[in-house]
Write a protein that binds this DNA or RNA. Structure first.
Lengths: 319, 319
DNA sequence: CTGTTAGCGCCTTCAC
DNA sequence: GTGAAGGCGCTAACAG
């Protein structure tokens, strides 16, 4: 094959102008059925594929989607959830000729936000770890090419997921259930907590919640707190597998049997939750689908509905 | 602020032509010290930032780097190592205005290879899971914008890493050490195996190797094989943490104590290796650095030397 | 060393 | 519905 065919050749072959060919191939603007067929046919025969970079320059859109993750620590970019979501977005936008880039945002990220608003290489932004203040200060130029995970964007139905695990604990006889929550500064931490308090009150059970932060270390510390304040606790639910592993470690060190004495549940079903010992009961989430949905919504290819994706309990050994 | 300044304005302000301004700002082509200063000054005052997309279109280079991972299974794109490397590449090439995309390659990937060679949106390719046949059939147009992980590109010094762990096992009194290897179809599986056999022969110890494939399930199966064929084994080394977790599971199920009866070592130090119970002794690797090095080499920003990055033993509980 | 002049490949007003 | 022409913003030959 010679060098790649260009739009000019497709147009010539189809017997129309480049303008018409462009309209047909890009699907924007009017075109008669006849010329549409002619152009499509010519493009197919020639194996024409539009040059993604030229197209994006002309259109003024960027070439990459930015996955911005707001967190206290920069090493959030090594977090399994983040890397998995970033990779999924890359796979989901591959066909559009787009790439993905990732960036850590500090809790106060106003400066970074409008730096990204003026970066012409950025087609769209997906933001995780948002809060209200940050969304309020959103540069207007990001309007229409922006999507959050949660807070109006696609997300895990964490309330339903946590509820399902709590119900399982209740059904299996647990009556003094503690919860290690997510970090208080994270808006997404609220839903699971509310689900928990609501369900406990419905069951007539005591509320025993301790603040966590998604880390294993905090899981250990939180467990010590739980055991000290409420020694008769018979189940510890968490909202992250890392936390749950910390809980397991602390319980093991204290000689407490799992699940006999205390049941434990995680959240997210990270790659090694199944391989932990004992195997972690948790909830699994379609991270790839959520990431893809967020990317598509940010690109305006899909309605940015606040769709909640199901969280499925995975019952293994710990509960 | 008005709309973004363009090269024309910078040139006018500096009192030179756009060509000169372009040369200075892009660092390609000659320029006198005087005009260099003038252009730089003008650019700084105006807050000029070149449009990445326009630049890449004019230059004919793409806008994204492709991370292609060759493996039997498509879900290799969920592998912790892959997602971590992909994310690291994204972070490393962010400043260049590039994005990252990921793609799974089947074992026989010749077709995909030249599909990516003709994709004008791709600036460079980083390939993992290569073998000789595939590299031999490399499209020539990829020359100069291609880098492998291993096989001529940056990689973990897995021979040294495995050796260090084996030496540790030997020093701590283990004398019947088995190895669960990587998948035979993967070129990178050879170095650790050779390090193992070499060291065993040096120590005058028996060679006991079983084929693995980086999965937990295979780790369990391999352990059964080891226990059946060589019941007096006192250490099982692996070349992947997932495999090691499988080994731990099988040993626990068999009532064998770790590390008292059998010591176990992993490889890679995945996020939860430290949180496993018992905590996994393994080797840690600078995945982010390796990924960044590969990306830069593929882009021609760094010499594509076959640099080996150190593998550091992390002694925890299992050995 | 510098300026002029075409591109890079496609999109998109604007008249017809 | 269609075509002509002028961008999108920068780079790279080519003279000078």
């Amino acid at each position: 094959m010679t060098s790649r065919p260009q739009l000019t050749e497709v147009a010539r072959r189809a017997g129309v102008s480049v303008a018409t060919a462009s309209r047909v191939l890009s699907g924007r603007g009017p075109a008669s059925g006849a010329s549409r067929d002619a152009v499509r046919g010519a493009a197919a025969e020639l194996g024409y594929v539009a040059h993604p970079v030229a197209r994006r320059l002309a259109r003024g859109t960027g070439t990459r989607i930015l996955f911005a993750v707001r967190d206290r620590r920069p090493d959030i970019l090594r977090d399994p959830f983040v890397t998995r979501a970033a990779t999924a977005m890359a796979a989901a936008t591959d066909a559009d000729g787009l790439g993905v880039t990732v960036r850590h945002l500090p809790l106060d990220a106003s400066a970074e936000l409008d730096r990204m608003a003026t970066d012409r290489s950025i087609a769209a932004v997906v933001l995780a770890g948002h809060d209200r203040a940050l969304l309020a200060g959103l540069p207007s130029s990001l309007r229409g090419r922006f999507c959050t995970i949660g807070a109006g964007g696609p997300d895990v139905d964490s309330a339903a997921g946590v509820s399902a695990l709590l119900r399982h604990l209740h059904v299996t006889g647990r009556r003094r259930i503690a919860l290690v929550t997510g970090p208080p500064w994270l808006a997404a931490s609220r839903a699971p907590l509310e689900a928990y308090t609501g369900l406990m009150s419905e069951y007539g059970l005591p509320v025993r919640s301790v603040a966590g932060d998604f880390t294993t270390a905090r899981g250990r510390a939180a467990t010590r707190t739980v055991l000290r304040r409420w020694p008769d606790t018979d189940a510890i639910a968490t909202v992250s597998d890392a936390t749950a592993l910390g809980v397991l470690q602390c319980l093991a060190a204290a000689g407490i049997r799992v699940p006999d004495d205390i049941a434990v549940t995680g959240f997210d079903d990270v790659p090694f939750a199944a391989d932990a010992h004992p195997a972690l009961t948790t909830a699994t989430h379609p991270v790839e689908e959520i990431a893809a949905a967020a990317a598509h919504a940010a690109l305006g290819k899909a309605p940015a509905a606040a769709r909640l994706f199901p969280s499925h309990p995975v019952l293994r050994t710990t509960a």
